[in-house]
């Protein structure tokens, strides 16, 4: 049992191992990762395909369980928690933006954005909500169903959902992967803004150095291990580092 302190941290993983399969088929998606994610920081996770980025996010967000090691959200240790407790932690403390298929088709944009708050029975900060939807240029699309929105709009609604409830931490797995550059830029600006204005913590997986450059820090994964990190990155520096890794 670790006694590591989690003061001032949004999330933490210690000795994280996630192994798929057995014997010859064994894949170590995460191979011993220990890392702190301080509050109010925007972290980008990069690495080649199959390096374990998604697995890291999912394990830390409580969607998946580590084979070995421990994770925390704030000071709540997820390892060993019951399924329903983990669900509650997710509901109250975690926001998600996935690469696609983020929205519930029966709910309109506004309802989708408010969904986590509704499930938790919490009230929305109306001022913040208005700002988020305005910045994401979806204020006039709030009464539309996902099927009536473009891909970019859908993705921005998903971002609004994650940001509007001001969770302790937002996990975003390639949120801009299928967006055009303008939508992509807007989304990153809003995410950056949430970090700067409200001290929002965000962990974002991305392939795009242009996206990763908005983060405070980039960490590089390879074969389930953190192989490097870079503070206040620029697109060029990231690009060079990525090239070196291939």
């Amino acid at each position: 049992m670790s006694t590591a302190t989690t003061n001032g941290l949004a999330a933490r993983i210690e000795g994280g191992r996630r192994v798929y399969g057995q014997g010859d088929n064994e894949v170590r998606a995460l191979d011993g990762i220990t890392r702190d994610f301080p509050l109010g920081r925007f972290t980008a996770v990069m690495g080649p395909s199959g390096s374990g980025k998604s697995t890291l996010m999912q394990c830390m967000a409580g969607l998946d369980r580590l084979t070995e090691g421990e994770t925390w959200i704030g000071d709540m240790q997820l390892t060993g928690m019951s399924e329903s407790s983990v669900t509650r932690v997710r509901r109250d403390n975690v926001g998600f933006i996935f690469q696609a298929f983020n929205l519930v088709p029966t709910l309109n944009a506004r309802e989708n954005i408010l969904l986590p708050l509704d499930i938790a029975g919490r009230k929305v900060d109306q001022e913040w909500f208005d700002k988020v939807v305005t910045d994401l240029r979806i204020a006039d699309r709030l009464d539309h169903r996902p099927s009536e929105l473009s891909g970019g709009q859908q993705q921005r609604v998903a971002a609004a959902r994650a940001i509007a409830s001001r969770p302790k931490i937002i996990f975003a797995d390639e949120p801009t992967g299928q967006l055009d550059s303008r939508s992509s830029a807007e989304m990153l600006d809003v995410m950056r803004g949430a970090v700067d204005q409200f001290g929002q913590t965000i962990i974002m997986v991305t392939h795009d150095p242009g996206a990763a450059r908005h983060a405070d820090q980039v960490i590089f994964l390879n074969d389930g291990k953190v192989v490097d990190e870079m503070d206040d990155p620029t697109a060029d520096a990231i690009f060079d580092r990525m090239k070196a890794m291939d």
């Binding site: 399924e83 997710r90 509901r91 975690v94 926001g95 996935f98 298929f101 929205l103 519930v104 959902r161």
Partner: peptide
């Protein structure tokens, strides 16, 4: 399936 997964991810409990 996907939609239910999404709901579960953002915090809908099994009971819910």
């Amino acid at each position: 399936t996907r939609e239910i997964g999404m709901l579960r991810a953002v915090g809908l409990s099994r009971r819910g």
